[in-house]
Design a binder for these strands. Structure first.
Lengths: 209, 209
DNA sequence: TCATTTAGTGACTCAAAAGTCATTAAACGG
DNA sequence: CCGTTTAATGACTTTTGAGTCACTAAATGA
């Protein structure tokens, strides 16, 4: 009689993904140095030794995990920054709303924090993070703003700095939620923030005379 | 003949401050888990055992260090958020300029990053950080905005979210500098950012019709 | 069905770093 | 100047967790 639930399973293909997935949870929760590979193994449902079949060292696993996190979200970025031909006034609210939705759920915020935290120890990851994600978003946005300036739609000014004015408050909002949770009196609702900030950055907060 | 430079010195009062100062450098550089108390001791010019005369454990030293960092900068905050009776249009550029100056030099940016990084492991510190620093800045700013709204100076909207619109881009700029350094093509000059963002958040980035 | 291969295991080794404590010597008071 | 106190030391002990490897058993195929 064949055992339907053998103690071990040999699944060479599935393991790396499962391990990285488990590792992401653990590394996001504790940071690189304070994470224990035993915990990763338990969460992935394998023995510690199994980790070493697929990854040379703890650092190796961390790099693979962070890379995965970054490149996965890269697709989302590509989609968001895809050619948009409307006016800036139309684009900004949509962009910020979409960002609020993406950041609100899932573990993106935690990943951002982890990468921030480890960027000193892993400058190569900081570089990937910069080149593949941050520079793309800011660069694409700056291009769109420059085009809008050429059309006379946006006033004079450094497009790169305008881009920071647009996304900065959303980043702050996300980090606020991530670090302090939503129980703070000052914790922003990300959807409301997206809506109001879009208006603010486009029209200014001063009352019209 | 008296030795003018004895091998040891007994300076019960000065030690804790010196140790915390050394610890701040090390913790900011490596984070809590990856920091070695031996390094702290060397940097403070004492032996490892001496640390344990003044602090129970590594965690204890870390808490004391972070507290010190937060409360020291608190004074700067108090000063910045001191009663300001001009219009919002006058306040915002001054406030952002001052923030740019403070963040640009010194180790404040590093401290912010460290607290962000360790806030999961030390939720009590996150609370202090929140109550003593973040909530004060945002709260004070929100008050000033609400008052300006009452005067008809600022348009309708949530004052707390307006506050985030004001400070968010500066925070992003500081974190950008801290994580990626100033060699990135997109690295913002903090002074320029302060100037342009003040204009943007007050007037909006759309050209006037 | 049995032999062979190799994914998977977890008790073990080993290095690193937290934390201890017997010893040393600076300060101080008589 | 000497005796006493205690800040300071650093070699030592202990703990923790990364990394190893002899062994186990699931798959494969002859």
């Amino acid at each position: 009689m064949k055992d339907p639930t053998p103690k071990r399973r040999r699944r060479k293909d599935a393991r790396p993904g499962e391990i990285i997935n488990a590792a992401m949870d653990v590394f996001v929760e504790h940071g690189f140095a304070a994470s224990k590979l035993t915990d990763v193994a338990i969460r992935a449902g394998v023995a510690k030794g199994t980790l070493y079949l697929y990854f040379e060292t703890k650092e190796d696993l961390f790099r693979a995990t962070a890379r995965q996190a970054l490149t996965t979200n890269l697709e989302a970025v590509e989609q968001s920054s895809a050619a948009f031909n409307g006016s800036i006034a139309d684009l900004v609210p949509v962009l910020l709303k979409r960002a609020a939705g993406r950041m609100g759920d899932g573990r993106i915020a935690g990943i951002v924090r982890m990468v921030l935290a480890e960027s000193r120890a892993f400058p190569d990851l900081a570089r990937i993070w910069h080149d593949e994600v941050v520079a793309r978003i800011l660069g694409r946005l700056a291009e769109l703003i420059a085009a809008a300036q050429a059309r006379g739609e946006v006033r004079a000014g450094d497009p790169g700095l305008f881009a920071i004015s647009i996304v900065g408050p959303m980043v702050l909002g996300v980090l606020f939620q991530e670090v302090f949770g939503s129980d703070s009196r000052h914790a922003p609702d990300l959807d409301l923030l997206a809506t109001q900030h879009a208006e603010t950055v486009l029209q200014g907060l001063l009352a019209k005379p």
